[in-house]
């Protein structure tokens, strides 16, 4: 399974790692994400299990996005990096409609702009959550989001 995936993704691959026997991590350029995902979908390789956003911290200045695809025991992770101050990735909802939830999560939790995603509403955070405060970023502090209704 992993070999098949490696072959499908070959064109866009920048580096690959196999951290565990049944895993394959493929580093991609953010611009190649859409065709790479489409290639996996077209070949009916697995399903999107999750999109994880990891803030690498203010020093590294980057956010890493991990697109996990599972097929049986095999897990392929597409790794994409984007600068922290201008986090931006294209949406993969065209080929994977169920990605919409994860992309909404990325937008509100990490402040990643997802271009062309069908729904940009908040998914988890409350309506009165301050704009431009992203809880999953490493430099988030509780004080950034004052608790409402401390008068009650």
């Amino acid at each position: 399974m992993l070999k098949a995936a490696a072959r499908l993704l070959q064109r866009w691959t920048q580096a690959t790692v196999t951290p565990e026997p049944e895993r394959l991590d493929v580093t991609l350029d953010a611009a190649d994400l859409v065709p790479a995902v489409a290639a996996l979908q077209e070949a009916r390789w697995g399903y999107l299990a999750a999109i994880t956003g990891v803030d690498l911290g203010p020093e590294a200045g980057e956010i890493e996005l991990l697109y996990h695809f599972c097929a049986g025991a095999a897990v392929v992770t597409l790794r994409v990096r984007t600068p922290r101050n201008q986090a931006f990735v294209p949406s993969i909802c065209d080929s994977v409609p169920s990605a919409s939830f994860y992309e909404r999560e990325l937008m509100e939790m990490l402040g990643v702009t997802v271009a062309n995603t069908p729904n940009t509403d908040r998914l988890f955070l409350p309506d009165d959550w301050p704009q431009e405060v992203y809880p999953l970023r490493k430099d988030f502090r509780l004080e950034d989001a004052p608790l409402p209704g401390s008068d009650t």
């Binding site: 939830f101 729904n119 509403d121 908040r122 998914l123 955070l125 409350p126 809880p135 999953l136 988030f140």
Partner: peptide, 14 residues
């Protein structure tokens, strides 16, 4: 149909 979550979002991941 559309969905909005978050009423029981507690911020567990953080």
């Amino acid at each position: 149909a559309s969905l909005r979550l978050g009423y029981v979002h507690r911020g567990i991941e953080k």
